[in-house]
Design a protein around this nucleic acid. Structure first.
Length: 358
DNA sequence: AACGTTGCCAACCGCGCCAGA
DNA sequence: ATCTGGCGCGGTTGGCAACGT
């Protein structure tokens, strides 16, 4: 009551975001922090609905997002977690802080699903139950024992995966050069790990990375459009894809000379952003490697795994989770592992082995 | 070279939950 | 207690690029 309508849908722009819009959004969020999405379009003048702004931020612009190919480890994590959690992409994404749920979802649908299909023909979207019920005619007692083993293994595997991830990214920061951030999935209805939705200094400092990418894409586009005819403006999303971590943003005004399409106020913004970006000396340097990043992880951010871990394990206890893959691993091993051997086997069971099945 | 098909991914849509009025 | 808006999530779609014929 009394609240204005969410999205009047009149004059609301849809479709791909332009670099200009991105920059406006990023700079606004940098000043005000994410959240209060409803006020974003009005305060920024963006002709986008609040939802679109939020989506753009969470899926593309927020700091620390790793783009590009998924690593083997990430792939394995996804497979593990999907087996455990199902299509709860947000929950899965919470274990892969550098990836968005959308990214993971897309990757699953385009890559991993196929691999699974290959691996388990006839196992499609609703195949878990089929697989579970029909492919193994085992006695109920046996099945229950296996389920128990599955649960144990699932927990172990998850913990292992998480500890692996921790060790390689700890705490939530990847030691690899290219990623990490302090995980920024919005806190909300509780399905995502809690972390401050208000601005944290590290979060916004790292915005420079995304801004750099934005600007680079923008400049590339400008250069392109300056060189090429304007007949093919090019898809905006491609411009976005062109944003590279590896390139250096020249701080000269070169872009403005090319950027005939750049509005004046954007140029000013660009300059300020570029100088801001200069604190990140190397364009290839990841957000994670920005020295100020890791120490600024809030306790909430640092505890993402722990916080999320419990619910997941609780789910394993309290609800049916798809354990098909785990079952498969067990069955493929040809025998139920004796309890005393489980630990040893689990210790020797690397993620590589697990997913080598694919 | 032209056309058709497939793959990929950013963005949208609709639903549900939660909190505020 | 009820209604409404804000927000997050998962599923789906649109459009471009790559690939194949």
């Amino acid at each position: 009551m009394g609240r204005p309508p969410c999205c009047d849908k009149i004059g609301v722009k849809k479709g791909p975001w332009t670099p200009e819009e991105d920059i406006i959004l990023v700079s606004y969020i940098q000043d005000h922090g994410p959240g209060n999405w409803r006020s974003v379009p009005t305060n920024t003048g963006l002709l986008r609905c609040s939802k679109s702004c939020r989506l753009r931020w969470t899926n593309y612009l927020r700091p620390g997002i790793k783009r590009g190919n998924f690593t083997d480890h990430e792939e394995k994590m996804i497979i593990h977690l999907q087996a455990l959690l199902g299509n709860r992409w947000a929950a899965i994404a919470s274990y892969l802080p550098q990836r968005t749920d959308n990214d993971i979802k897309n990757y699953w649908n385009t890559h991993l699903k196929k691999k699974l299909k290959k691996f388990q023909p006839g196992l499609d979207g609703h195949g878990h139950e089929e697989f579970r019920s029909s492919s193994h005619s085992i006695s109920k007692g046996q099945w229950e024992r296996r389920l128990q083993t599955d649960i144990q293994m699932a927990k172990q595997a998850l913990c292992e995966a998480l500890s692996l991830d921790k060790s390689s990214t700890s705490p939530l920061a990847d030691s690899k050069p290219s990623d990490h951030d302090g995980h920024n999935i919005d806190s909300g209805n509780g399905t995502r790990p809690s972390y401050p939705s208000t601005a944290s200094s590290c979060t916004y400092a790292s915005n420079t990375e995304n801004i750099a990418r934005l600007l680079e894409g923008w400049m590339k586009n400008s250069a392109k459009s300056a060189q090429a005819t304007k007949s093919s403006p090019g898809p905006n999303h491609n411009a976005a894809q062109d944003y590279s971590f590896n390139s250096f943003i020249p701080t000269s005004g070169s872009s403005s000379s090319e950027g005939a399409t750049t509005p004046d106020h954007h140029q000013g913004l660009e300059y300020s952003l570029l100088s801001f970006n200069s604190s990140v000396s190397d364009g290839s340097q990841s957000v994670a490697s920005v020295p100020d990043e890791k120490p600024n992880l809030t306790p909430d951010q640092g505890c993402v795994f722990q916080e999320e871990n419990e619910p997941v394990l609780d789910q394993i206890h309290h609800q049916q989770v798809p354990l098909t893959l785990l079952e498969k691993w067990l069955f493929d091993d040809g025998a139920i592992v004796a309890p005393q051997d489980q630990e040893d086997q689990l210790n020797s069971m690397s993620l590589d082995e697990d997913t080598a099945l694919f």
